[in-house]
Design a protein around this nucleic acid. Structure first.
Length: 264
DNA sequence: AGCACTGTTGGATA
DNA sequence: ATATCCAACAGTGC
């Protein structure tokens, strides 16, 4: 689940619930998620400090520890963050629990396919880990978008999902963006026309922003979105036809064979 | 009960 | 550069 819009919602959630509160103690309960940091170090760096601000790049969330490094959270397929009410225990599958004087913040991850780390310099992390520009950053203007997308000649869907090309888009929103732009998921990235890339760029920004505005709740998304229909037997919200289910780049793919014929 | 499926990334392989 | 397969892991559904 956690792609750019989801992580943005987590970011805003932390901003609203957890900044500038002293961490009484940090509890780490899944060492397998830790990247380049021990549970001991994590506890020491978090305990007694406050979260100062947050930053997101692609699907990574960074939380600045006041006067110290950034806590880096990646959510994998099943992670999220949730506030813990005062006096309550952290919920099931909590892997990192920041306990405040009253209440706390829990990072949950049932499948443990996420990452927890500490980074001194976020920009350095982005560079070293070969992350492309964030899909919603001003850095990714139309011209840059055209250049980076055209540098690849696989399926456009795979290109959109390649974090080294664009950071933030995963399987679900790749389908959503291509549906909005009327582009076939298997169209070759480097053969897309200027105009088509313009459609794609516009759709990407609009869809991601709209999903964030809907708090990634399918019930609050426009009825034109593919997401609520993205299931076996689902129908196209535009023409009512049965959606085509296939695999592109090894990932489950939903598209409408009538409304997504644009190949280039 | 057993098996295949799933929104993530990363590595090996061809 | 790209596609495929696998692994990490746990929950769910058939």
């Amino acid at each position: 689940m956690p792609e750019l819009p989801d992580v943005q919602v987590f970011k805003e959630y932390i901003d609203a619930t957890s900044l500038h509160r002293r961490i009484k103690a940090a509890h780490v309960s899944a060492s397998g998620l830790l990247r380049g940091v021990s549970a001991q170090t994590l506890r020491n760096r978090l305990g007694g400090h406050e979260l100062a601000r947050t930053r997101r790049h692609g699907k990574h969330l960074f939380v600045r520890i006041d006067g110290g490094p950034w806590l880096r959270l990646h959510f994998g397929m099943t992670g999220d963050v949730v506030h813990v009410g005062r006096g309550e225990d952290a919920p099931e599958h909590t892997r990192l629990h920041l306990e405040f004087a009253r209440g706390g913040l829990a990072y949950r991850n049932p499948r443990k396919l996420g990452q927890i780390g500490l980074v001194e310099d976020v920009d350095e992390f982005i560079e070293e880990n070969d992350l492309g520009p964030d899909a919603l950053s001003g850095e990714l203007d139309l011209e840059t978008f055209r250049d980076v997308v055209r540098g690849h000649h696989g399926a456009v869907k795979s290109t959109l999902m390649n974090q080294a090309v664009i950071a933030g888009i995963g399987n679900v929103y790749a389908d959503e963006v291509l549906f909005a732009a009327g582009i076939h998921p298997e169209a070759q990235a480097n053969r897309l026309r200027d105009e088509t890339l313009g459609d794609l760029h516009r759709a990407m920004i609009r869809i991601l922003k709209r999903a964030v505005a809907a708090r990634v709740d399918p019930d609050r998304m426009p009825s034109s979105f593919l997401l609520p229909h993205r299931e076996e037997g689902g129908t196209c919200p535009r023409c009512g036809r049965r959606l085509t289910v296939s695999r592109v780049g090894g990932r489950a793919t939903y598209h409408c064979s009538r409304d997504q014929q644009k190949k280039h």
